[in-house]
Simulated scan of single mutants.
Amino acid sequence: MAGDTTWTTPSTATDPEAACPIAPVVDIVFSRWTTPILWTLHTYGRQRFVELQRRITAITPKVLTQRLRQLERDGLVIRTYHPEVPPRVEYEISELGRSLAPLFAHLTQWASDNLPKVEQARRAYDTDPAH
């Protein structure tokens, strides 16, 4: 973007991380189910597995388990095990996960401002006989 000082020029285009230094962040934060899980935990607070599954209806139990484990490993989610009968496990967003809130707010604003333009561009592209 011309004039945007937040973008930097990589030193080499052969190293994928040098070519796009935010790629590791995108892999962590924007994996298929990461954003809905973090959004749900941020919005509704601490929840049990079943509550998360009810709120994110399209996710399978297996995938939810995998994503929660990865998010816990990445430090974005805290898992609390309560040794009761029956055992109870709760998940909540960590401080590190909460630190993504401004990014999500910015993306929400971008979506509000620009998704209609994206849809318009798609319609124009799809109806252009040259494509």
Rank of each mutant, 00 (worst) to 15 (best):
R122P: 08
V77R: 00
P36W: 01
H82E: 11
V63A: 00
L107Y: 06
Y125K: 13
L41F: 03
R67N: 00
W33F: 06
T65Q: 09
V85N: 14
L71I: 04
E72S: 10
L71V: 03
W39L: 11
R123T: 13
W110H: 09
K117W: 08
S31Y: 06
R46C: 07
A130R: 13
W39H: 15
P36L: 06
K62W: 04
A105E: 15
I56M: 04
W7G: 11
V118S: 13
A18Y: 04
D126W: 12
L52Q: 00
R73N: 09
T14P: 01
P24E: 08
G75H: 04
A18G: 04
P21M: 07
R69S: 02
V29L: 07
D126T: 06
I37M: 05
T9Y: 15
D113V: 07
V118Q: 08
D15C: 08
C20E: 14
V50K: 06
G97Q: 06
I56R: 03
P21N: 10
T35I: 13
L71N: 03
V25G: 05
P83G: 05
L100R: 00
I59F: 02
W7I: 15
L103K: 10
R122Y: 15
P87M: 06
S99P: 05
P10I: 13
E119S: 10
T108E: 14
A124D: 14
G75R: 02
W33C: 01
T35F: 14
S99F: 13
P36G: 03
P83R: 11
P86E: 03
S94I: 07
T127Q: 09
T34E: 02
W7Y: 15
R55W: 01
Y44P: 00
S99H: 15
L71G: 01
L52C: 02
H82G: 05
F104W: 09
A111C: 12
A58Q: 08
T5V: 07
T65G: 04
T57W: 05
P129A: 05
D15M: 09
A19N: 10
E92Y: 07
G3F: 08
A130S: 13
G45E: 04
P129S: 05
R48C: 03
R79W: 04
E51F: 03
A124T: 12
K117E: 15
P86S: 04
L107V: 07
H82L: 06
R123I: 14
L76K: 02
